[in-house]
Design a protein around this nucleic acid. Structure first.
Length: 367
DNA sequence: TATCCGTGGGC
DNA sequence: TGCCCAAGGAT
């Protein structure tokens, strides 16, 4: 541009987007505002990493309180690396995709040991760390360290597939989208460009009824010119959910405690605490499964229904009262009902406890 | 490459 | 009500 040549399509697009971003950037707790970024201020890589992992398949609104709680409790990478895994899992309870929490701990400890607590600066190095894949490695490298790499999340997939009317369905189109985006990334402001693309997708280029009239790229958008915005991105059809059934055991000791256990480290709700359950099966539960301890079990109503990403689960609940001196079987423990929130139960388990003991999962005043 | 892995909100 | 969707990663 400076030498008088016509600006390239890539430059025009990036400049239009960045100009829009300077006016319309979302204000987020882990982000540095455009005016400060341009003054050379960079976000804290620890906060960028934590936020990016929390935001995987999770809305900004859902992340809000968790990010505040995590950063208050563990203000930097070294503090987080020293946190017991169980405490992190419990603090994560309710956010979902619990392997993220386990990988977060593993990643922090790796950074502490192998990098002296300093996050590596390059995307290809970041991608070797637990819980950091193609998206997160690129986003940390671009946003925290201004490496000019294409950052492709769900927002960017939508924006790019519309801009260029990419007909190949996702997820096969991922690499095509990344390579289409690569030459658009401005070498001097890759971090803001990544944030701007995501903000555009989140606020203007929405899945339904995009606000094309407000879009800084509308004159360059092929989907818009064809009035086929909502046809993109094309997605492969998804499979039906499996139906599953399980029995659960709410053992209540007369001194106000409930019996809990811990799920296996991997798989569904891996590593999380739980209300003891029988096997998860494909046919409705007709008979009581083997209980964790001998007691006068009584089936209670109603059932609990819970929908996971790929499983539609129905839980039948048995309940029993036990004497205060009843010991917990091996691998189980008694947890104070008054402090059930601190047990870190995933949502389906909180629902089960709530069905048996209404109010149990709310913070309750003593007495 | 396809499948597994949560949750809550929008329409 | 049912389906879609949200800053994906691991295997």
């Amino acid at each position: 541009m400076e030498n008088g040549e016509d600006a390239s399509f890539e430059d025009v697009l990036a400049q239009a987007l960045l100009a829009w971003y300077e006016r319309h950037a979302r204000t987020l707790p882990w982000r540095i505002a455009p005016k400060w970024r341009r003054a050379g201020v960079r976000p804290d890589p620890y906060r960028v990493w934590l936020s990016e992992v929390m935001l995987q398949q999770t809305t900004v609104k859902a992340v809000g309180d968790y990010f505040a709680a995590f950063t208050a409790r563990w203000p930097d990478m070294m503090a987080f690396a020293a946190a017991p895994e169980e405490q992190v899992m419990a603090a994560w309870a309710g956010l979902g995709y619990y392997s993220r929490a386990r990988n977060l701990v593993a990643c922090a400890r790796r950074v502490a040991e192998d990098y002296g607590g300093m996050m590596p600066r390059k995307a290809d190095e970041l991608a070797k760390l637990p819980g950091i894949g193609p998206y997160t490695s690129a986003s940390i490298a671009a946003i925290a360290f201004d490496e000019p790499v294409p950052v492709v999340d769900g927002n960017v997939e939508r924006v790019v597939s519309r801009l260029f009317a990419i007909d190949r369905p996702l997820p096969q189109a991922k690499s095509e989208i990344r390579e289409t985006l690569r030459p658009l990334v401005p070498q001097d402001r890759p971090g803001e460009f990544a944030e701007a693309m995501m903000d555009l997708g989140a606020t203007i280029c929405s899945p339904k009824r995009p606000a094309c009239a407000l879009c800084p790229l509308n004159m360059m958008c092929r989907a818009h010119s064809e009035q086929r915005e909502e046809a993109y991105p094309v997605k492969a059809p998804k499979r039906a959910k499996a139906k599953k059934f399980a029995g659960a055991f709410v053992a209540l000791r007369d001194d106000g405690k409930i019996l809990l256990s811990r799920r296996p480290p991997k798989g569904l709700l891996g590593g999380m605490s739980e209300v003891p359950t029988g096997p998860w099966q494909e046919s409705p539960v007709t008979r009581m499964p083997a209980p964790p301890l001998s007691a006068p079990w009584r089936k209670i109503t109603p059932q609990v229904s819970h929908i996971f990403t790929h499983i539609d689960l129905k839980v039948t609940i048995w309940q029993a009262s036990l004497l205060p001196d009843t010991p917990a079987p091996e691998g189980f423990w008694w947890h104070d009902l008054e402090n059930l929130k601190e047990a870190g139960l995933p949502t389906v388990m909180a629902k089960i406890a709530e069905a048996a003991v209404p109010g149990a999962t709310k913070a309750r005043a003593k007495g």
